[in-house]
């Protein structure tokens, strides 16, 4: 049976704080099962992501190919996950 997932919110931004609209967001690693779907951020960079309890690495990729990641420990309380994307070094 599926573990109950909580809907969290987040935002993808560029290094200058400008929202990254149309970015893909997905769970790259985790300690619990998550579907391998990718969420698309809205015009202000916001997204919603349902996670079961556990620890996850969330990654994002902007329309221009810039990538970033954030760590999240999900429980019963909704989180806000901020991901900054930038060009690879």
């Amino acid at each position: 049976m599926d573990v109950r997932r909580i809907l969290h919110t987040g935002r993808v931004v560029h290094h200058n704080g400008r929202p990254a609209a149309g970015a893909f967001v997905w769970v790259a690693t985790g300690t619990a099962p998550t579907p391998e779907i990718a969420v698309v951020s809205d015009e202000k960079g916001y997204f919603r992501l349902a996670l079961p309890p556990g620890h996850f690495e969330i990654r994002a990729r902007s329309e221009g190919g810039q990538e970033g990641k954030a760590e999240a420990t999900a429980g019963e309380e909704p989180l806000h996950i901020e991901i900054e994307v930038s060009a690879p070094d």
Binding site: A38, V39, V40
Partner: peptide
């Protein structure tokens, strides 16, 4: 609650099979 990308595949010319969570997800 948002837009997403996923993958499907043709099993007939008019039927695409995919994961259940690509068409229905109460949580997401």
């Amino acid at each position: 609650w948002g837009t997403f990308i996923g993958t499907g595949w043709l099993v007939t010319p008019t039927t695409v099979i995919t994961a259940g969570h690509c068409v229905f997800d109460k949580s997401q």
